[in-house]
């Protein structure tokens, strides 16, 4: 996925940059919980920041805002997704995380749907 030099653990990832999860390095229930909450390899995560005492940290992943402890974040290896220059625009990127995903889905037709929206309106 990425050059080994650019790998770091999620708790040390610079805040407000977009990263891709490379691996989860723990086993058992903790691993299950992390993966069930959507932190699977390949997922885009952005660290929003740390809680006032430095721990836990708050991350964005799959459109959700999760708090997790540094100890657990340390088990998650990530690689930066974007250029450093781009990364300052993290706000944009974390909202449109889907666009940066490697597997490109069926994004076409978005405009068409938006037009349809009009007559469906509210419920």
């Amino acid at each position: 996925m990425s050059d080994a030099r650019h790998l770091f653990s999620l708790d040390t990832a610079p805040p407000q940059t977009q990263n891709t999860i490379v691996s989860i390095n723990c086993q058992g229930p903790v691993r299950r919980r992390l993966m069930d909450m959507g932190l699977t390899p390949g997922t885009q995560v952005a660290v929003e920041g740390a809680a006032p005492l430095g721990d836990p940290i708050i991350v964005w992943a799959r459109g959700c805002r999760l708090a997790l402890r540094c100890g657990e974040a340390a088990q998650i290896t990530v690689a930066p997704t974007m250029d450093i220059t781009e990364s300052s625009k993290w706000l944009e990127s974390c909202s449109s995380g889907r666009k940066h995903r490697h597997r490109q889905g069926q994004r076409g037709g978005g405009r068409r749907r938006r037009r349809q929206r009009g007559n469906r309106g509210s419920m």
Binding site: G28, V30, P56, L66, L68
Partner: peptide, 10 residues
């Protein structure tokens, strides 16, 4: 025990 995790959705 090993299962103590703190992953909390805000």
């Amino acid at each position: 025990d090993a299962s103590s995790t703190f992953v909390l959705e805000l």
